[in-house]
């Protein structure tokens, strides 16, 4: 116990904690949109495509984060365009983008003379090396994204649920969907720092699916995801430090555990509700002794 408490005294752990909380909150918002629209696979494509940007930026001595953002936004908007204009098979296009991004990334990282970056940290994240600059960028983007979601909550839901109807009501559907595509891209790239390319989608999907067990409302899923995401990543980070294992993997483990426990709780709650309802009206007896009459 003392060991755990003393962890919080270290600067690197405080930074990691801040980064985990901010990333989880950002992923809670953006992930709710991704899960609701069922575009998890698309988000995987964007994530992996961004590695191409990282490799190219390294090669030319630029900021790898900016390279990743540029690639992610371009692929996000590209897929949004394909899905509305649909001249090619969308799922195949995503798979091509996915692997091409990774290929470009690895080619350019290998071509970069001298210092080669630690590939493992890109693929699996490196939460313990997060610095103050990362945290400030995360905080600013989270603030902006929260404002966007609060101000445009209705149009976001309307255009995600039924874009054609929204268009008949005069909503600027393309503008809203493209803005969301850009936000998705930025949120994913920022989260790669903590979770890594391969593991990042977990924080955009697992807390959301846990929240879905308790709410069928877009705003309810956001709230639930914030709760489950933040608590899960804090617990995951502590677990990682205790057992000396990678933070991102530990976070996923805790988030999945949360989901499984919640699933159990949800099933029990539903059963209780049913028995309470039927025993209150005496239906339970009837349904056992009298067979339902079919027309």
């Amino acid at each position: 116990m003392q060991n755990i408490l003393s962890l919080f005294e270290y600067q690197f752990f405080q930074n990691a904690l801040m980064a985990a909380i901010l990333t989880s909150a950002l992923a809670a918002l953006v992930g709710t949109y991704i899960v609701s629209r069922k575009v998890v696979f698309i988000s995987g494509g964007i994530t992996h495509a961004s590695f191409g940007g990282i490799g190219i930026a390294y090669f030319f001595g630029l900021n790898p984060f900016l390279g990743a953002v540029a690639f992610a936004i371009a692929s996000s908007l590209g897929i949004e365009w394909i899905s509305t204009h649909g001249k090619i098979r969308e799922d195949s296009a995503i798979a091509i983008l996915w692997s091409l991004g990774m290929a470009l990334g690895i080619i350019f990282v290998f071509l970069t003379p001298g210092y080669t970056p630690n590939l493992m940290s890109f693929l699996f994240g490196s939460i313990l090396s997060v610095g103050m600059a990362d945290i400030i960028v995360l905080a600013v983007v989270l603030l902006f994204t929260s404002l966007f979601f609060v101000i445009f909550s209705r149009p976001i839901v309307y255009t995600a649920f039924d874009p054609e109807f929204a268009r008949t009501r005069g909503l600027p559907v393309t503008l809203i969907r493209n803005s969301m595509a850009i936000l998705v891209a930025i949120a994913i790239v920022l989260s790669i720092r903590v979770m890594g390319i391969i593991l990042v989608l977990s924080i955009f999907t697992i807390p959301q699916n846990t929240a879905l067990l308790f709410s069928g409302k877009f705003s309810g899923i956001i709230k639930g995801s914030v709760l489950f995401g933040i608590s899960g990543s804090i617990l995951g980070l502590i677990t990682a430090s205790i057992f000396d294992i990678p933070g991102s993997a530990a976070i996923i483990f805790v988030l999945t555990l949360q989901f499984l426990i919640s699933k159990g709780v949800a099933i029990i709650l539903r059963k209780r509700k049913k028995t309470r309802k039927s025993s209150a009206t005496g239906e339970e007896k009837n349904s056992i002794h009298e067979p339902h009459i079919k027309e």
Binding site: I151, R154, Y158, R169, K217
Partner: peptide
């Protein structure tokens, strides 16, 4: 299966080009 309530779906019909936001 989209997470939206009946009431919110119905209210989305009130949006107009000038008031959607």
């Amino acid at each position: 299966s989209f997470p939206v309530t009946v009431k919110d779906v119905i209210l989305s019909g009130m949006a107009t080009p000038r008031t959607w936001w």
